[in-house]
Write a protein that binds this DNA or RNA. Structure first.
Lengths: 353, 353
DNA sequence: TAGGTTATCTAAACCGGTTCAGAATGATCG
DNA sequence: CGATCATTCTGAACCGGTTTAGATAACCTA
């Protein structure tokens, strides 16, 4: 005796019209007399009718859902502040319009491809958000070939049929460099992201050109895979150099925090002996000691706008590229003027033995 | 001239049988002659037939997807190592069977309810994973009423029609306390999670009973909301006490890291002056200085098994409670014997001025 | 007043599967 | 040899919407 939810046919019978007309009325399509439409809507409302997404999905060939495939080692994901905030923003845009996010987290590139294929084949999603763009990213072609709509986070380095929504990292990097240079730093190192990732490359390029403008050497660059482990390794390498940097600009906060750990363990006082900056500020950076000078982006807003843009694209509307407000420098405790005297390495005289 | 994907009718025509029989053959149901079945499968395979999830969804009234609703402030999510790893595990179980995860991230409890309702109403999912159980959690009844299948992460404190998959925090907490007590600590504090959350409560209870067994005072408990900010506040409060603790057990790693920051900023040397431990170990804890003694769980495995259990429940199979291996203590640098002499507060004599 | 438009509505096909009643066939049994 | 039964298969209904062709009625125009 379970109360079945009413279908469009129930509404039609109750309102004394045909099934098709109900559909027209409910979808606000022309060809229905004003009073009839009203009556149908009333009846539907009264009966508590709600559309069946599945039926609609089958007949209209749409999924009413967006996909996000994240290809990362879960170790990297943990601690990464980007996706939680981003997803939360996406959600904020989707929930009000009754759409949902289908999330896929995979570890390898092969699995990533399979995931896009499966989502498209099964008709799970109408479009995807392509994040973490790589150089010559094959996903652009793949997704296009699969017939999915899409947007990219950032501009791809190849021809792309999809609009991009991006945040220019350059001003953020530049302001970090300017901040450090203004403090008097001459040897500023960069712990960069992987060069196969576009934002890794672009941050490095911005870093290099910012240094050049200031007339500073830009040879102190170590490439990493964005993990804490690799950030630590990069830091150890830099600190062992004869012409050791007095400041290190990290391409993300996780590495900056790991780097801070390495520096402190080696006996460096941050920021007295060494300045450190992060990127893509996470909450936790404000609470460590010293708190982390970093660059923050309105990630949640980025997610919201990305989802809205993709919805527009799916709806067939004009989908223009969107450029969001650039990242902002947040100066905290981990950056200070460089030491005036040379510091030996490994530094002694700390209160640890 | 787009190559349409073949439907079951195409296969039927090609194989010279009826549509219904093809369906039977493809679903391995009895009543199809062995050779006919083979022929049908051959034809289907040759034509590249793949089932339409949407059509199947409509006629079988299933979604072939699981839901996960996360109700947290994105600020808390960032830095929380649990969900990325958990989701990655869920994904590992879903991808091979062609199912997907529908993720919803909301900020308020009202939005959380609406989210469950919407997912169920729209038939987006067949079941949900209930995480972050609260005391007297209304979601258990809600989800049941919505007709969804579900499993809970941990045992609810109320009657529940759903199987639970849990990790006993108790051994983890106990081994932390044992570790600290063995080092000689007498005043061990606890920075607890919110008391409306079951795992918050249970960790606190385990902590209290572990202390009692050792005959130690258990009055040093501060409740928090699990955020870095609140972890920092709790730490400040504890360190201001006259009978300040010599060790602090945090209910998660994020708070432990924030607490470490507070302690260091106040001039405490960790672990010489104060020992600190975390919980639910994140990767980053291994890289900070001092590295964080913590308790780790195989979160990814938890996710995988949770998804598998829920799939079984949805399939109508027996769904028994599952108890996973308890959390493991990982001793690192942030814990050491208590100081032998009293330490003034705020402590002076650090190399910062 | 006949002929043509337009607005409104119905009936049926369609999306791509599943499922069930019953027909056709062949085997078994008394 | 006819009745009974199991096996194999067909045809049609069904899930709950959308969409299109065409029927009907009302309204204009000449």
């Amino acid at each position: 005796m379970a109360k079945q939810r009413p279908t469009i046919s129930d509404v039609a019978r109750e309102a004394g019209v045909s099934k098709g007309l109900v559909s027209f009325a409910l979808n606000d399509r022309p060809g229905v007399a004003a009073d009839t439409r009203l009556r149908i809507l009333d009846v539907a409302n009264e009966m508590g009718w709600r559309p069946s997404l599945r039926a609609r999905s089958l007949s209209t060939d749409r999924a009413f859902a967006l996909g996000l495939v994240i290809a990362r080692d879960p170790e990297i994901m943990s601690g990464d502040p980007f996706f939680p905030a981003f997803i939360s923003g996406v959600e904020a845009a989707l929930a009000p319009v009754g759409q949902t996010l289908v999330l896929s987290m995979v570890e390898s590139e092969a699995a990533e491809f399979a995931s896009y294929r499966q989502l498209a084949d099964h008709g799970r999603i109408d479009g995807v958000i392509l994040s973490d763009l790589r150089r010559n990213d094959p996903r652009v072609a793949l997704v296009h070939e699969l017939g999915l709509r899409a947007i990219t986070l950032g501009h791809p380095d190849i021809e792309s049929p999809f609009p991009a929504i991006s945040v220019d990292d350059s001003p953020g990097i530049r302001s970090v460099v300017a901040h450090l240079a203004d403090l008097g730093h001459q040897r500023i190192a960069h712990v960069a992201g992987p060069s196969r990732m576009l934002h890794g490359i672009r941050r490095s390029e911005s870093f290099a050109s910012a240094l050049q403008e200031r007339g500073l050497v830009d040879t102190l660059v170590v490439e990493t895979d964005f993990t804490a482990a690799d950030g630590a390794r990069a830091t150890r390498e830099l600190l062992k150099l004869a012409d050791r940097p007095t400041a290190i600009v990290y391409s993300n906060d996780v590495m900056a925090i790991a780097g801070l750990g390495v520096a402190q363990r080696s006996g460096f006082d941050v920021p007295r002996d060494l300045s450190i900056t992060g990127f893509d500020g996470s909450d936790i950076g404000a609470y460590i000691y010293p708190s982390l000078t970093t660059v923050t982006t309105a990630v949640q807003d980025w997610g919201r706008q990305a989802a809205e843009l993709l919805l527009r694209v799916i709806a067939g509307e004009q989908g223009d590229d969107i450029e969001l407000a650039p990242a902002q420098l947040v100066v905290r405790e981990s950056s200070a003027p460089p030491p005036t005297t040379d510091i030996p390495y490994p530094r002694k005289g700390t209160d640890r033995d």
